[in-house]
Design a protein around this nucleic acid. Structure first.
Length: 291
DNA sequence: CACTTGACCTGTCCGC
DNA sequence: TGCGGACAGGTCAAGT
């Protein structure tokens, strides 16, 4: 599920909602969701106050006053939802949360704060995880060492973007875009959207993409991700923000999940097929393999 | 090394 | 209605 814009939306929500709150209790139902949650480790959490909420690529980091950080990956179906004390949800209740009463059957980890509020880590497919690490060690973990630059950073240039792809000259442009070591945070939705914007066929080999085409792809990727953040991300099924609410980018998508509909640029019918192992959406007129 | 494929899970949808 | 298979926003560990 969540790509850079969704994780950033959750980060912003949590930044507003949980900084300053003190952890009182932690429970988890699935060892894979919180692999190092031994009693000892969980004890490092109790009494700790949240000092910051950060993001790198698709990874969230909740910093604690004790020098530890909760590192969280939502993978496909992870959700982090905050509920205030006495929050009432469910059928008939006037709120626009996509999910009802918590915890529910996909709740994997529950954090209870001293003021009676809760943070729930929900994850239907159990691919996501929470780990507690010393804050100073987070930059040393394998993922952080290998992950590419943040595409939305102000000082990240089109030239740097193009340079990052050189190592993957013989693979498809879509596979390279999805490779987190090339550029951070791109997933299936925004890969398809950016490739449509740049009029690039996803199966074009990286080595065949010109400097001008890379520059266009860079611009399109940044613009689509910025728009997605503005719209609070994409909710197809599972994704919700820190308040349990949906994002609206799908209303603005040009090709993703729009097979059978008209290309907004030329009117040709959008098609779907498999590329780089993923469901892939293109306009067959705008995005040609044989350029 | 670079590259591709299957595995990890649960739930839903589609065709028979 | 039931059942099997394909598929879903992401990584990894294997294999070539």
């Amino acid at each position: 599920m969540p790509e850079l814009p969704e994780v950033e939306t959750v980060r912003r929500g949590l930044h507003e909602l949980i900084i300053g709150r003190k952890v009182a209790k932690v429970s988890h139902d699935n060892p894979k969701s919180f692999p190092n949650a031994s009693a000892d480790v969980v004890n490092f959490l109790i009494g700790a106050t949240v000092t910051n909420v950060r993001r790198r690529a698709k990874v969230l980091m909740i910093d604690l006053s004790t020098g530890y950080t909760l590192v969280i990956h939502l993978k496909m179906t992870g959700q982090l939802v905050f509920r205030g004390k006495d929050a009432v949800f469910g059928a008939g209740h006037p709120n626009d949360s996509l999910i009802g009463e918590l915890p529910d059957r996909s709740t994997r980890v529950t954090f209870e704060f001293a003021d009676g509020s809760h943070l729930y880590f929900n994850d239907q497919r159990k691919f996501g995880w929470v780990k507690l690490l010393p804050t100073l060690e987070v930059p040393n973990i394998d993922f952080m060492q290998k992950v590419g630059p943040e595409p939305l950073e102000a000082d990240f240039t089109a030239e740097q973007f193009a340079e990052r792809f050189k190592r993957r000259a013989k693979t498809s442009i879509k596979a390279a875009l999805l490779d987190q070591t090339v550029v951070a945070g791109v997933g299936n939705i925004y890969a398809d959207e950016a490739l449509w914007g740049a009029k690039l066929h996803p199966q074009r080999l990286v080595g065949s993409v010109s400097q001008a085409e890379f520059k266009k792809l860079y611009t399109e990727l940044r613009s689509v991700m910025n728009l997605a953040i503005e719209k609070g991300g994409s909710t197809d099924k599972n994704y919700v923000n820190a308040e349990g609410k949906r994002g609206s980018y799908m209303d603005f998508a040009r090709v993703f999940r729009r097979e059978g509909q008209a290309c907004p640029r030329c009117g040709t019918t959008i098609i779907k097929f498999k590329a780089a192992g993923r469901g892939t959406h293109i306009c067959p007129h705008c995005q040609r393999l044989d350029v």
